[in-house]
Design a protein around this nucleic acid. Structure first.
Ligand code: FES
Ligand code: FES
Lengths: 144, 144
DNA sequence: TATTCACAGGATTTCGAAAACATATCTATT
DNA sequence: AATAGATATGTTTTCGAAATCCTGTGAATA
């Protein structure tokens, strides 16, 4: 459904939101350990999020990643767009070059509802809301 | 969501159901042209469907693929299981090693509903029903 | 101002899904 | 029985996502 990049991106953003702040920036090693993701690859993905102003970063000593108030309130869909583009929300469920109402695949009617649900899921969930689950102990970003 | 193999498999099965019969078997070239899929790769996938008794095949002159009455009534989920396994129906939405109720990811509650819908979609749609859309002109397996 | 820490960014490698190839096997037809 | 036409099967190649490596750049601190 989502690419690995996107999955890591969502997990990383939530972790940074839960653990970090303007005063307490989170380093890449810390992030990767807690979300169980490959370091260099994750660093690259965080670059993308930073360029898209979804997370903030600070170079140098005591540097790291953090989210400001505005960024905390962003919905997850922004992360999906930044990493995977809009394909998830408009592609055909069984691989037709394009999904259309005029030449729909046999699954189209049932699938477009699901696609809309996926969109709602990431559109209506903010990074902060997800982070709150972590803090409360109701959510996890890695298992074991 | 589904792998390329699975997408081609679903499209191929529906096409065979719509166009073929015990008397009129469908060849690989015919199939690939009408569902716009790579020939050799699709042949390999049809092997899998044949081994899993989802489609029937006949070698030799005038041979090809077809579906008997029982096979026509099978739900698409059997194709998904044969090609992709059960991961789609039980994996975590943001890539945790495993999805569990005891250590759920922050998206778990919202995602498991979507996952169930995907399952219903392929569980409640039979190959024959999908094929019927083609015959009626309400469904397509390739665009342009 | 020199040094060190941590992110930024380009270049490269790895790995598995996707695709192509080559050969074997089976069957209707002559 | 020989042949031609079709699927079956094992092997190899391609390609892009995923992951790594290496160097550059900015900021804090001593
Ligand atoms: S055409 Fe397949 S989902 Fe719309
Ligand atoms: S743990 Fe992520 S979907 Fe269940």
């Amino acid at each position: 459904m989502f690419s690995k990049s996107c999955e890591y991106a969502i997990r990383a953003a939530i972790y940074i939101s839960a653990e970090g702040s303007m005063e307490k920036k989170i380093g890449i090693d810390d992030i990767c350990e807690h979300i169980e993701a490959p370091k260099h690859f994750t660093a690259k993905i965080l670059q993308i999020l930073t360029r898209n102003k979804i997370v903030s970063s600070q170079k140098g000593v005591n540097g790291g990643f953090y989210l400001d108030k505005k960024q905390n309130n962003k919905p997850l869909i922004e992360i999906v767009y930044a990493t995977d583009g809009s394909d998830v929300f408009c592609g055909c469920g069984i691989g037709l070059k394009e999904c259309s109402e005029s030449e729909p695949c046999p699954l189209h009617e049932k699938f477009k509802g699901i696609r809309a649900n996926i969109r709602s899921m990431v559109e209506e969930s903010t990074i902060e809301e997800m982070a709150k689950k972590l803090t409360k102990g109701n959510g996890f970003l890695r298992v074991e």
